[in-house]
């Protein structure tokens, strides 16, 4: 009983453990309101944090190893024509909404084209929206060029 009370008192007079959600990620209207007041910086991520996936389209050689190990099947084989060499070159498209952040594709990639960033804010209204698909912009550019 006593230890409970002492712990409660310790908590009452000590520093609180919770933190206000980092303002950096709040909607803009809220930021304006809080601009003059107490702004909490986001808590720093440790090194090696597995967050948002990023993919270097130019580095990719299209070996397809990542396709083999991805447990969530979050990667899709999206072959496009390599105009210079005039043969289909495999490039990958990542569906971020399906990603489980296991880092297996990062480990298996022989050229280091895939990375996991410390960015953890990935909530989105659209499951397959443009910003949820990594590698699609390049693919689009390519399609447009092809079309011309």
């Amino acid at each position: 009983m006593l230890s409970t009370v002492s712990r409660i008192m310790q908590q009452f007079f000590g520093r609180r453990s919770t933190n206000v959600f980092p303002v950096k990620y709040a909607p803009e209207s809220v930021i304006d309101a809080l601009a003059g007041g107490d702004i909490h910086p986001p808590i720093s991520m440790p090194e090696g944090y597995r967050g948002k996936l990023s993919y270097d389209f130019d580095k990719c050689i299209g070996c397809g190893m990542c396709l083999k190990v991805c447990p969530a099947k979050a990667l899709e084989d999206y072959p496009i024509m390599d105009t210079e060499k005039n043969r289909p070159s495999k490039r990958i498209v990542f569906y971020r909404g399906k990603c489980t952040y296991c880092e297996e594709c990062v480990k298996v990639c022989p050229v280091g084209a895939i990375k996991l960033n410390p960015d953890f804010m990935m909530a989105n209204y659209e499951k397959y929206g443009d910003d949820q698909i990594e590698g699609i912009e390049k693919r689009r550019e390519f399609e447009v060029k092809e079309g011309q």
Binding site: P46, E47, G48, Y49, R50, T100, Y101
Partner: peptide
């Protein structure tokens, strides 16, 4: 936090 430092994630350590 310790597990996050070790594995890069708080819940699914992989």
């Amino acid at each position: 936090d310790c597990l996050e430092v070790i594995s890069g994630n708080r819940v699914n350590y992989a």
